[in-house]
Nucleic acid binder design. Structure first.
Lengths: 149, 149
DNA sequence: TTCTACTTGCAATTGAGTTGCAAAAGCATT
DNA sequence: AATGCTTTTGCAACTCAATTGCAAGTAGAA
């Protein structure tokens, strides 16, 4: 399977192998893209990239689910209802995604606020907590500047 | 317009008037339901209630948007992608909804964790924060018990 | 009661995400 | 490098939350 000659190419292969996933083009592409990108990406954004190699929409979804299932990426459902997936080289291979995320309501980009770990939350007795996510929304610096013109 | 004879009937009318919304059946019904319910409700749940008076789906959506716009209710997009709306008598009329929410992945009910105010979050310089939400998910006490049978 | 702006109901549409299935590809083995 | 088994892919169809346009209906003020 043809693939890009990017800097993370060997790294993605190693990561996929380590978690027991077959090395397929879509998984390499998706993990590669998430590692390169400085911020979490939505399914739509992954499809839009020039180097997406025209993988089918469904294939991208399934690649994301596989990576998520193996813990290579974390995901957040934004206030806009769109799920975005992120991978951080420093977090891998046990990327917890245990931090807040910022979502710009104008450009739709999401950023990991890795400096803000999620707080402990008190829940009623008997409750089982499986996970948590926090989304901060508003305008990113660039969009905030444009909004004031 | 016919309406229920519930305990909050006068309260809803007063609240709607105070924020400058016309007193219509759907708004009374929705606000009433949210006040009575101990937890935030989705559009679907609002439609399903016996006393929903068969308002149109779209009407319920628009009533929710109007209440939200006027700050009478707060809303949260769950990890399941479904938006739920909550009103708390004690919060009104400036219900901030500034607390975490718990979402049960089994029964789909959402609860306000009013004891857990959202933490301050550090964002990059220039960022405009307009709001934030936190969703904790897992199993509620009842569902956790059933899952162990 | 009348007038007008706002609200409602209906039908159609959008868009994210999922499912079933036959063809194709990964990979361990020979 | 051929075999065979299992997983993955592509395609089409589908589900479901949420939105939009518009004509008919209604709340509230004059």
């Amino acid at each position: 399977m043809k693939r890009g000659n990017s800097s993370h190419d060997a790294e993605t292969a190693e990561l996929l192998r380590r978690v027991g996933l077959r090395l397929t083009g879509s998984r390499r592409y998706v993990l590669e893209a998430l590692l390169q990108s400085g911020h979490p990406l939505s399914h739509q954004e992954l499809l839009g990239r020039r180097d997406s190699l025209r993988f089918d929409r469904v294939t991208i979804y399934r690649a994301l689910l596989a990576l998520k299932r193996k813990g290579l990426v974390h995901d957040v459902k934004g206030t806009d209802g769109i799920r975005r997936f992120g991978a951080h080289p420093t977090d891998l291979p046990h990327c917890p995604g245990n931090h807040a995320h910022f979502l710009c309501r104008r450009c739709g980009r999401m950023f990991c606020l890795t400096e803000s770990p999620l707080p402990w939350v008190e829940v009623p007795a008997g409750t089982t907590v499986e996970g948590k996510q926090m989304v901060v929304y508003g305008l990113c610096p660039q969009c905030a500047r444009r909004e004031n013109d």
